[in-house]
């Protein structure tokens, strides 16, 4: 994997809108791997092989982690 040459925020900014257009993607963010390295994180409604195939493993030297989030919604209560 290439060594990052740009700030992760700039990389995310350039790719966020495109990833958010992919059906099933719920959120994108900056995160850290378990070893503390900066990573890009893509949250998806449900991780299917088709969706996984559309998402990268790394971008500009930053690893991309995929996480199933389910539906993200406002958390008021109704009943």
């Amino acid at each position: 994997m290439a060594h990052p040459t740009r700030d992760i925020s700039a990389v995310l900014k350039d790719h966020a809108a495109g990833w958010m257009q992919i059906p099933g993607v719920t959120m994108v963010a900056e995160g850290q791997t378990e070893t503390g390295a900066p990573c890009l994180r893509i949250y998806v409604l449900e991780l299917t092989p088709q969706l996984r195939g559309r998402l990268p493993d790394a971008v500009e030297g930053y690893p991309v982690e995929i996480e199933e989030s389910g539906e993200i919604k406002p958390l008021g209560a109704g009943g």
Binding site: S9, L12, M20, T26, V28, A29, E30, G31, P74
Partner: peptide, 11 residues
């Protein structure tokens, strides 16, 4: 766990 997130929420 994450910062600078972009997220769409329906109301």
């Amino acid at each position: 766990s994450g910062l600078n997130a972009t997220v769409s929420v329906s109301y």
